[in-house]
Design a protein around this nucleic acid. Structure first.
Lengths: 234, 234
DNA sequence: CGGTTCCTTGAGAGAACTCAACGTCGGTGG
DNA sequence: CCACCGACGTTGAGTTCTCTCAAGGAACCG
């Protein structure tokens, strides 16, 4: 794996070598002055992996540099509900920005790197920097769009197809797709039982549209998936 | 009805007499210089009622001054899917802001008044006005929050309860609630068949939680509804 | 008053869920 | 290196919630 696996390693971001396009930090000249780069492992390594916790004060926003971060909430029964997956270039914590406290928790689903931008600094600059505010507005708008898309009423097949197409696009777009998240997480995000996710994937496989092995999806007929997914948008 | 019913009547906004709190236009000194006030009837009056059309160039944002505006999209079969209801003080068109074209259509569900703020002016000022950008960011964030809340996996009863509580709050909060929208629109928004919405309401009525007559809801036990709605958030 | 559109209620169908059992994978430690 | 373990993935059977289809009644508008 191309990631530095040591937990909670802090380093200068080295933005010049960063693979991320359209990075908030670089675009808004936050680079090298405001933020730290952090490498993260999925939870099971004690404690270190949580970027923010629902209800706790918001420490920072995070630009994903590598890997995949999920945001989620816990319901009254302690069940996890995934709100979003964030890929390189995405900003984690936008929906918490104005509030004192985070409205969701965030944690990596694969080994990841993020750049942490202190929330206090963002808030301070928001007051008199139109560029930064406009930039954040753009991204929030886009998140709103995908949230609205996904909140529509679609079949399990449509949801899964749309998800695969979308993740594939976000991860390079080849014919082989390595899903960073488990089927449980995928189902939580799409509001489907894990069994349903699994059944849909086997159905797709029987249709000859893909091959699903572990978390490796080989796309055989992405046009078919794309057509199925089309109404969802995402 | 307390509204001026003449369609497409344009007038000076007269912001000083406006009942709307936290108005974008007043807060950002757009008042009286940039925008027009428009009175609207629900569609059936030819043409005049549509504020924006999905896919068409975005002319303006609208601050709701009175009444209720819905935004919606049409799927491939021409079915309407309600994305949001906007009440006095709300801003219509936020999710379309950065794009050239509107991502949803908007139309009143009851006789309404809106203040139109030309999109071009907004875009222009966004580039160098931190206050305006921050303001819009705040509102977009909030919309994102409710969209994420509603996109969770909830029962029909939970959805309807949450909706009633929310609308009641937005419309004054008394024990008598006059719903501006039809059950069809409500169902479209909550992703429920109209028959389901109806059945839920009769169920609530049998529980003694409310009385539903036409579009007038009399709340008898809002704590019960609130408890049911609690997981949804909205 | 006619004609819509909306609301209401019933019966049946279907998509997705739950429950349960089993197979598989990957990491850990003997 | 292999055995073990927990989490993940797979598959089946039965259930449930919501939808669809259908029909009648109520409200609203011209």
């Amino acid at each position: 794996m191309p990631f530095d696996l040591s937990p909670q390693l802090r380093a200068t971001p080295n933005c010049l070598a960063c693979p991320v396009q359209n990075c908030l930090a670089r675009a808004e000249n936050i680079a090298d002055t405001w933020h730290d780069m952090v490498s993260l492992l999925p939870p099971q390594m004690p404690g270190t992996a949580t970027l923010m916790i629902e209800g706790e004060p918001l420490q920072a926003l995070y630009v994903v540099r590598a890997g995949c971060i999920k945001t989620y909430t816990l319901d009254a029964h302690g069940n996890e509900h995934v709100r979003a997956f964030h890929f390189p270039g995405d900003l984690v914590g936008l929906d918490s920005l104005g509030s004192e406290r985070a409205t969701a928790s965030a944690t990596p689903v694969t080994p990841s790197q993020v750049c942490a931008v202190p929330a206090a600094q963002i808030q301070r600059r928001l007051a008199d920097d139109a560029g930064l505010a406009g930039h954040l507005l753009q991204r929030t708008r886009r998140e709103l769009g995908t949230a609205l898309s996904l909140s529509g009423e679609y079949s399990a097949d449509q949801r899964v197809a749309a998800f695969l197409i979308h993740v594939n696009m976000r991860m390079g777009g080849g014919n082989i797709l390595r899903l960073p998240m488990t089927q449980r997480e995928m189902g939580s995000y799409l509001r489907l039982a894990t069994e349903t996710v699994c059944r849909v994937l086997t159905r797709f496989e029987k249709n000859g549209w893909l091959i699903s092995l572990n978390k490796r999806i080989t796309l055989l007929d992405s046009p078919a998936l794309r057509e199925l997914a089309e109404p969802v948008g995402l």
